[in-house]
Structures are given as C-alpha cells and as structure tokens.
C-alpha cells in the first residue's frame, strides 16, 4: 500500500560550483528521468558563480517545465555586496517561476507577493511561520537541524495556515555560512582572487581531523556535513506529521536513482529497509545520518524503531 502518493518529492538547488556543462547534463537527465515533482534552481551560496550558469536558466526552466516539473528559483543565502543585493532584487521582481527566499533582503524586496521560505530563513516555529504566512509566504522549508517534535509542531501550524511544508531528507546538511571563502583559504587565496577553485570539488572539499577522521565539507563560504542526511526510514512519520514536500539535495552521485528510491518507497513499491540499503550503495563512501531528526548529534545514524 502506498505511504502517500500526494507527497511531493523535490530537488533542492545545487549547492556546489558545478560547471555550466555539468549542470545542463544534470538537469536534462532530471527532466527526462527523475521522478521528482519540483526542482529548485539558482545560485544560493556564492554570487561570484552565478555568471557561469545563469544564462542557461531560461532554457533549463523551459526544459524542466516541459517535462512536467514545477520550477522554483531560489535566492542567495548571504546578501551583502551590491551584486548580491541586485541579484536578490531581480529574482524578487519575477512573476514566474515561483521563488524561494533565503535572506531577509529577499523578503523586503518581495513584499506581500507570494513566495516560498527557504531553509536559510530560520523558520523554526509556529509564531514565525504564522508571521511569514501573513506576509505572503505559501510554503516553508524547515531548517535542517530541527528535531522530530519541532518538525511536527511546525508542520501542523503551517498546514493549518494552508502552507506547504518541506524537510530535507537526502544529502549533506548545510551547517554554516560565512563571509570568508574557505575554499580560497585552503589554496592560499582570498574570496576576491579565488579563481573558482571550488569547481574542483563537486561534492565539497573534505576536512579530516588531525587523527584522520572525516568531519566536515567545505563549499566556498558554506560548511556542510560530512555525512549525507538520510530520512528515508523516517519518511512515513514525516508525512504523518504533516510534511508535504521531501527535499533531495543534489550530490555528486546518481540523483536520478536516488529520486527513484524515494519515489518507490512513497508509492509503496519497495519496502523501506530494502530501499534504504540501495540508497546507502548509491551514496558511495558518504556515511548516512539522521541525528538531527532524532534530537542527537547530527552526524549520528539512529536505527529505525521496529514498526508498531
């Protein structure tokens, strides 16, 4: 039996500096093959990267929409420089596609016109979600570090207000952003003369502790988890708690296959245990984690409770 065929599967924006060619190929495959309902596009992390791929946006949007996907354009998480303010304003002025706002500068520019709230907006609670809904928010993506009881309470409030509620269920969790570029720093450069060295690391630059344990990933100004979040075993409970959208974050793995695994579980075609084993294989060397959801250290992997 289906868990819930109403639940939407979404693909979050690419966090990394993938080349324009890599992005074109990626989205062509997503359009043709991936069983996702909605796709978020746009540069969220570093405004210096946008010129490399923004010219392709109209064609990518057209291609994805033709394939029946709903497209949403995400704004930058950090807005400080003139070009970042301008980029945010430009997206805020768009009538279509839908937009997802990741910085209060975007909220200011958007006013009461409809918009989605991105995971960088810190919508942690019912009061904040109610405020945002009153300002035109139609949908909210919760922060990646929220534990299950808070997700349930936030989802309940959001659904009562008619909002869509989204939770990241796959991929590295964003743990921090900074004004400083740590990719440039690792190569003895600064943000202004970075020479786009982040392109070398399509799944982030690994940091290991001095006793050689993998710990974090660097992506320009962003720091990510070493492990991939995996809430496939928790999907049924997320949906029961009111979550309407499950977000897959693009990693340098076969994302079409990853989406298929989630779709198979949502449609009741494959048992969760079998699907989760497949997901682990698809995720390669990356460890899988669900600690945030279970209210413990984010990197931890908590075994699913036996079904009731």
């Amino acid at each position: 039996m289906a868990v819930n065929t109403m639940t939407k599967l979404t693909l979050g924006p690419i966090a990394y500096h993938w080349s324009a060619d890599a992005r074109r190929d990626f989205y062509a495959r997503i359009a043709d093959e991936a069983p996702v309902d909605e796709v978020y596009l746009g540069e969220v992390i570093c405004s210096k990267r946008a010129p490399f791929h923004e010219a392709d946006l109209p064609a990518t949007i057209e291609r994805l929409e033709r394939a029946g996907k709903r497209v949403i354009l995400s704004t930058l998480a950090e807005v400080m420089l003139k070009r970042e303010r301008k980029a945010t304003e430009d997206i805020a002025e768009m009538v279509s596609p839908e937009i997802e706002v990741n910085n209060a500068a975007g909220l200011y520019a958007r006013g009461k016109r409809p918009h989605r709230i991105g995971p960088f907006m810190n919508a942690y609670n019912d009061a904040t979600i109610a405020w945002m809904a009153g300002q035109g928010a139609t949908h909210v993506c919760l922060p990646a570090e929220m534990p299950a009881p808070a997700i349930a309470a936030a989802a309940q409030a959001a659904v009562a207000l008619g909002l869509g509620v989204e939770v990241q269920v796959y991929g590295r969790a964003s743990l921090a952003v900074s004004a400083r570029c740590y990719h440039a720093r690792a190569h003895g450069r600064t943000k202004d003369n970075c020479q786009f060295v982040c392109e070398e690391d399509p799944d982030g630059m690994p940091l290991r502790t001095r006793d050689d344990r993998p710990i974090l990933r660097v992506n320009g100004i962003q720091t990510l988890s070493e492990s991939y979040v995996d809430l496939l075993p928790e999907a049924a409970r997320l949906i029961a708690d009111g979550v309407t959208h499950l977000r897959l974050m693009p990693q340098a793995v076969d994302m079409v296959a990853v989406a298929q695994v989630f779709r198979d579980v949502l449609d009741g075609r494959v048992p969760t245990g079998e699907a989760d084993a497949r997901l682990a294989t698809l995720s390669g060397d990356a460890g899988l984690s669900n600690g945030f959801y279970h209210g413990t250290a984010g990197y931890r992997r908590i075994a699913a409770a036996a079904p009731a």
């Binding site: 810190n122 969790a173 900074s178 720091t223």
Partner: peptide, 21 residues
Amino acid sequence: GLMVEGRCSLTNYLTGQSTNM
C-alpha cells in the same frame, strides 16, 4: 566568530546541542 551568526549548526552536528535553539 567566523560563521554568520544565527546560521551555524556546527555544534549541533557534533554534540546534539544547538546554537540557535
């Protein structure tokens, strides 16, 4: 502090206690 304040979950990732919450 190096990270943008209010956007950092590094502590929660390693310890299970959140800076924001």
